[in-house]
Design a binder for these strands. Sequence first.
DNA 1: CCCCAATGCTTGACGCAACAACCTTCCGCC
DNA 2: GGCGGAAGGTTGTTGCGTCAAGCATTGGGG
Lengths: 160, 160
Amino acid sequence: MTDQRWLSPAELSAWKKFIAVVELLPGVLDSQLQRDADLTHFEYFSLAMLSEAPDETLRMTALASLTNSTLPRLSHVVSRLEQRGYILRSPCAEDRRATNASLTAAGRKKVMHTAPGHVGTVLANVISPLSADDVNDLDRIMGTLLEKLDPENRFQARGA
Amino acid sequence: MTDQRWLSPAELSAWKKFIAVVELLPGVLDSQLQRDADLTHFEYFSLAMLSEAPDETLRMTALASLTNSTLPRLSHVVSRLEQRGYILRSPCAEDRRATNASLTAAGRKKVMHTAPGHVGTVLANVISPLSADDVNDLDRIMGTLLEKLDPENRFQARGA
DNA sequence: CCCCAATGCTTGACGCAACAACCTTCCGCC
DNA sequence: GGCGGAAGGTTGTTGCGTCAAGCATTGGGG
């Protein structure tokens, strides 16, 4: 904390732009999903993780790890998604403390129906403005940062 | 929305990592500031913007633009910071609808005292892991994205 | 000169996230 | 085999962000 180095001009420039993007991007994603599917990005992401899981089912803890959320937060969100009919909770046979969350047919349909618009937003706002080289650089840089921010690789548990 | 292109493997890889960082980074920044200064990143950023402004004073609208927030949000946050003695509100002479927000002496001290730790966190988690080339690439890529996400350049009103 | 729309900001109500407290089940150990 | 601690989830409370009004001021057109 007494590491009293400041940022160089080049570093400061990059940092300011980076933090601006970090603040703005979630709003863009959330707005589109909210408007078109009445889902937050976190809700969509949770459903998407389930849709990619074997049997479209995950333990709460596993899903919390994949979505980088706390268990209490996930529990609340899953409760809402369950009430809306997208997710079904069931006790886990192997460990009776645990709860499995599974995608319902309606949930699967919701994800499939929502994905194109979301992907379109990502393309329009992030991918399309960048060149192929930019995308590679972005991949490399974010990979480096993830090693710092998420050492256990919980978030990126699924392969590149 | 019927632009039914999907993401290429390279794009998908970059996107997954990027979104992971976007989700994780705010938490890292907020945690450090909360722990060491009892401030959210947004509160710190607001104070920092004021500290760089002429007379350490800005109209609410101008500050909202710099911090990329809505006016209601800013109004609430400024109310809290005012109660804590870091900011003073005063009516604007030129336009009696407007409100000026100024840094108090305590607010200035708070920013000066908080900045080093915050910069240290940024260095440790974002800048240090990257090479000089990485930083340049990051600057270029985020600049490109900002043109899409913030066309009016409100967020980056101050020079690079 | 007056009216009316637009601007600048504030306030109140509601929803979601973080934190803490709690209950249940599992497991290691004696 | 039963005791204590750890792991897995759920439930309340508090705090912040968003949205919808609302009030005051300004500026432009009749």
